[in-house]
Design a protein around this nucleic acid. Sequence first.
DNA 1: TACCTCATGTAAAGCGTTACATGATTCG
DNA 2: CGAATCATGTAACGCTTTACATGAGGTA
Lengths: 199, 199
Amino acid sequence: MVFQGGRTEKRPDLDYVLLCLINMHEDTSGYQLRSFVEKSTGYLYRAHLSQIYPALKRLHDSGLVTLREVSREGKPDLKLYKITKAGQEAAHEWLLRPYEFKNTRENGDKFFMRLIFMGHLDPEKTVQYIDEGIEELKSQREQHAKNNLKREMEYLTVSDPEIRNRYQMIWDQELAFVIAEYDLRIDWLRKIRNRLVSA
Amino acid sequence: MVFQGGRTEKRPDLDYVLLCLINMHEDTSGYQLRSFVEKSTGYLYRAHLSQIYPALKRLHDSGLVTLREVSREGKPDLKLYKITKAGQEAAHEWLLRPYEFKNTRENGDKFFMRLIFMGHLDPEKTVQYIDEGIEELKSQREQHAKNNLKREMEYLTVSDPEIRNRYQMIWDQELAFVIAEYDLRIDWLRKIRNRLVSA
DNA sequence: TACCTCATGTAAAGCGTTACATGATTCG
DNA sequence: CGAATCATGTAACGCTTTACATGAGGTA
């Protein structure tokens, strides 16, 4: 433990994901955490053991987790982690921190990922988080709808009409797909929102 | 131009994306390419200028593109690229290369990205590509449906029933969302497939 | 005046993937 | 007998992001 760093140090998202998972389940090993990252956020975010072990070391050095080593004959020591008070505060701070939206797929996925760890939170806070997400997704949806790919057909300087038509068709479909995916996500957020307010 | 390397050298996907875009439009600059990457594949894949410039250098060194420099007073030279025969072959080889599926979001997106550049191809080849994608997505969908997050609620060692219920609700919704997103993508591939065979 | 677009690049930091290193046990 | 799971880690490599460097012209 170097210095109690619960404040707002810059940390990779992985650190917070692990912190939240350790908070859900005491005495977890790095190896177990990998499979739970997989099972919980797996569709939206993944991590390799080679990222997890250094991340746990960072968390330990900052005093956000403690560890207990269990010797096992012929095998490397098992390291079981517990969250500290500072760790719980850091996790809480992360969940409440205003989400920094960027217009990328990865950024959108991470917005949804954070939601997975919000069960501990006051539902009102989660609803506020979701509302911000809905607004952002609506605006991104409109941007895509406006930046119509059809206009960009001008870029295609290929004369063969059959090829042009094929590109046109694929790009039209592509745009429709992007819009549909945004609509699905917006809908999904609304569903969760409704369940949170009606509970 | 170091050596004509049209064969199957290992290249980042970015190189092929740029190659395909240069193939669509002669005499393009790196700067223009960035905005067209944005407008064409933007939802699925993006690149910064700091990646594009080195990529163009790689393509030029391998003889896949040629360039023409246009002097402009007080400004850096404008570099306009053209694809070579070797470049067209490399792009074609990339499009026909069997897609290496991995169960990650990024990998799924890149599958769809490649489709955007298949307008030049024999539609039968594109249909075959799509069929492989549909099979893969169906299998991934089933894996997610099976790895039901409910079972993983065991991991959550928090006693408060209100918190447990909230997690349960969010995770159930999360799973439903993942499945719905797979279904949307599978549907979308079927739509494009139908348009390709009926044309 | 401040910001955006055009236009080319390099350098460093950050994050993710693959390979290496070690070794027991279990399942097909 | 080979593959998978458990269990910990380090090192190298690759791609992405941000910062730095330079500078003109247009627009709010």
